[in-house]
Nucleic acid binder design. Structure first.
Length: 739
DNA sequence: CGCAACTGGACCTCG
DNA sequence: TCCAGTTGCG
């Protein structure tokens, strides 16, 4: 045990060994948060303060849960396998799934209920609007989806939503209809998993008491990312902090709260402190990850946010390398520079997997990928389409879902005519109308149909029935294999000329099933019901969506969004696209809340770097198929000058004034190709100004000329003033000066 | 009904 | 730029 506590610093030690009381650990980036969390659990168990079954650990990502479990197994030796495994570790969604499966009857669900991921949910909503004959222009499915999820995350069922206007009232009605549809189809969306579990515990006293008594210690990772409902869920489990209830040990960093857009409430940290009368608030501020310059930059950025709980990271590692900043002409130039720097790093001994390329949004990866590819540098992209989200995999899963639960209309509609089997839109429409009148699922309505639709649809139903019958006694991987064959998916993709990858993915699905079979405990219950394991597998597919698919194994440069990088660290980090409108994102600039979240995101990005940090931006960039001219990000201005080193031709210029794009620059050591003229520089007679030029306006401040029209006295230019917006100005009126 | 060609809006982040 | 949804033809 002395081993366990060795090498902890004073604050970490204090946090790990706190008495059984509620505690809030404010853990800065790189301060050993995960270590504290796992050591705390191991210490509690090893000192006999709690049985392994009495511990509940909640994380946000499957990755974090897995890592925690792995660490625990090594920390709890001997009976370890057993004791570490009897600790409940999982994500909110995963744990809720587990609870709902165990108590499905009390929760009003069939045992084999299915889980909708957000794409499925959207499809379900579109289908709902169609059957109700609702104009989806007036009620955009996406908006409705957000509305419904927001209500659920606030813990509100339709009757509890306050609607003051007709529009909202109508949306609430649709929320009601959506719920009815889900219930009819035995499907549950992500938010529903949480809400259902919460309501189950709130209403069912025996179940609530059982878990309240059981979980003596509830530990929460990334607490700043909890939403309202998740907080209430935790509160319920910990019996509202009453005497005799379990202890809540929450670890979080308000400065790293970057999920407001999906309902996270940083305010939960303050509420927790107040409502649970938390006396143990411990700050972990010593950073073991980054050099001083990087930390100073991070601190200087985040200090611009208001309403922080307050924290200042420090290190004893020394300043290290300056932060390098590069200004490129175009996004392609930017990418070329990144690749060159990577080549230098690799030559000097940094391994590729210790290098990360971060960006604000996935769309930015393409340019980078292109340059990496041409340079022959192995890379791995995280994000974008994940394995279980791929079209062909979803199709296969839809067949599997119909086997487990024929009432799943989303799955039914997805594959009823895929591969095509002569069931057209007309037949499906007839079926949907009939299902509506019978108030039954599509599948169960089929026998009631007559005529041609009845015939072809009955054939499809027979296909699914056969699949169910023939797979009843098959092990999971064989089951999947069988379905791929009989459904015709395999032969469909065999013919398809671009189907090779898709075929491989389908085979990969069989592998995934094998792995799942191997990992899942062989409990008798699962084997008793033939398709129970299948349902578990499908839940796994929805909840985990698979690691972001990438070539495994190879030593490759890592590409991902800043969001995806949270919790990770790298020797060298490149953060590209530091431009107003991109980062901070244009949709977030308008309100302060949004901007502060962007700043936290920036903070997260910067603190990923251990040794070297490279920041870059481009004067022009292709976005949505057109060239855009952006100002450099305000976050760059927030980094103290002494920490940075400006590269590129503009390196010698004064920092704030900028010098605009005046003609062509000689590329520095062949840093850019001159083959293509940067569009920004195409000259035009605009009274001395050029498109792409940075100018200053008395009222709106600094901006970039984006486009122009007219000429002579009528010449107008469109200028992006960043925070002040996009404006058309008459050259003869506006007093512009070159900035 | 199936397929190909076309058009318009969207991509910000995610479990 | 890309994708989804629509249109129009065989």
């Amino acid at each position: 045990m002395s081993d366990l506590l060795a090498n902890l610093n004073a604050e970490q030690l204090q946090a790990v060994t706190l008495p059984p009381q509620h505690a809030l650990i404010l853990a800065g980036a790189g301060s050993g948060k995960t270590r504290v969390l796992t050591t705390r659990i191991a210490w509690l168990v090893q000192t006999g303060q709690v049985d392994p079954q009495g511990v509940l650990a909640v994380t946000f990502t499957n990755k974090a849960a897995k890592e925690m479990l792995a660490r625990l197994s090594t920390m709890l030796p001997l009976a370890s396998g057993r004791s570490a495994r009897s600790i409940w570790v999982g994500t909110f969604h995963g744990l809720c799934n587990r609870l709902l499966r165990a108590h499905h009857r009390d929760a009003g669900l069939p045992r084999l209920f299915q889980i909708l991921d957000s794409a499925d949910q959207l499809a379900a909503i579109k289908r709902l609007l169609k059957t109700l004959n609702i104009d989806d222009e007036k009620f955009p499915p996406r908006d409705l989806q957000h509305f419904i999820n927001a209500q659920k995350e606030a813990g509100l069922r339709p009757h509890a939503v306050e609607a003051w206007d007709d529009y909202t009232r109508r949306r609430v009605e649709l929320y009601t209809e959506y719920e009815a549809q889900c219930q009819r189809e035995s499907v549950v969306d992500f938010a529903e998993l949480l809400l259902r579990t919460f309501e189950l515990m709130e209403r069912n006293e025996p179940i609530r008491k059982h878990y309240q008594r059981r979980f003596r210690h509830i530990l929460v990772d990334e607490f700043q990312d909890t939403n309202r409902l998740q907080y209430r869920w935790l509160k319920l489990l910990a019996d509202n902090g009453k005497e005799g209830g379990g202890c809540l040990f929450c670890v979080g960093d308000d400065d790293q709260s970057i999920y407001r857009f999906r309902g996270a409430e940083v305010g939960n940290m303050r509420d927790f402190e107040r409502e649970f009368k938390v006396r143990n608030v411990i700050r972990l501020e010593q950073n073991y990850r980054s050099y001083g310059n990087i930390l100073d930059a991070a601190n200087a950025i985040i200090v611009n946010n208001s309403a922080r709980l307050g924290k200042n990271l420090w290190t004893d590692r020394g300043g290290g390398e300056p932060i390098r900043i590069y200004e490129a002409f175009t996004d392609a130039d930017e990418a070329r520079w990144v690749v060159e720097e990577i080549q230098t790093l690799v030559r000097d001994g940094t391994s590729r997997s210790d290098i990360a390329l971060l960006y604000r949004s996935n769309a930015q990866s393409r340019v980078l990928e292109h340059q990496l590819f041409s340079a022959g540098i192995p890379y791995r992209v995280y994000g974008g389409l994940r394995f279980f989200e791929r079209q062909e995999v979803k199709h296969a899963l839809a067949y599997l879902r119909l086997i487990a639960n024929p009432d799943d209309d989303t799955a039914f509609a997805r594959v009823v005519n895929f591969p095509t089997r002569g069931i057209g839109a007309r037949s499906v429409e007839v079926l949907q109308d009939a299902a509506r009148t019978w108030n039954a699922s599509l599948y169960s309505t089929v026998p009631h149909l007559s005529g041609k639709p009845g015939m072809v649809l009955a054939q499809f139903v027979r296909l699914v029935e056969d699949m169910r019958r023939d797979t009843r006694s098959l092990p999971l991987p064989e089951l999947v294999d069988h379905v791929l064959e009989v459904s015709g998916l395999r032969s469909h993709y065999k013919v398809d000329k671009e189907g090779q990858d898709r075929l491989e993915n389908l085979d990969e699905l069989i592998n995934a099933a094998s792995n799942f079979l191997a990992e899942s405990a062989q409990d008798a219950e699962a084997l008793a019901e033939p398709h129970a394991l299948l349902a578990d597998f499908l839940a796994h597919a929805s909840l985990e969506a698979g690691d972001h698919q990438a070539d495994a194994g190879q030593d490759a440069v890592q590409l991902m969004t800043v969001h995806a990088a949270k919790g990770l660290e790298f020797d060298a980090v490149f953060l590209s696209g530091l431009e107003e409108g991109l980062f901070p994102h244009e949709n977030s600039i308008l309100e302060n809340e949004g901007l502060e979240e962007e700043r936290r995101l920036m903070y997260v990005a910067v603190t990923r770097a251990r040794e070297r940090l490279y920041l870059s931006f481009a004067q022009s960039r292709m976005l949505h198929g057109q060239t855009r001219y952006n100002l450099r990000s305000r976050f760059l201005e927030e980094i103290p000058e002494g920490l940075t080193k400006w590269l590129s031709v503009q390196g010698s210029r004064t920092r704030v004034g900028g010098m605009g794009v005046g003609g062509y620059f000689q590329p520095a050591k062949g840093a850019f190709s001159t083959k293509k003229k940067p569009e920004a520089v195409v000259s035009r007679d605009l009274g001395g100004f050029r498109i792409g030029q940075t100018v200053r306006h008395a009222r709106f401040g600094q901006g970039v000329i984006v486009s122009a029209e007219g000429g002579g006295a009528d010449a107008r230019v469109q200028i992006n003033f960043g925070p002040a917006g996009l404006k058309w100005l008459l050259l003869s009126v506006a007093k512009l000066e070159a900035a």
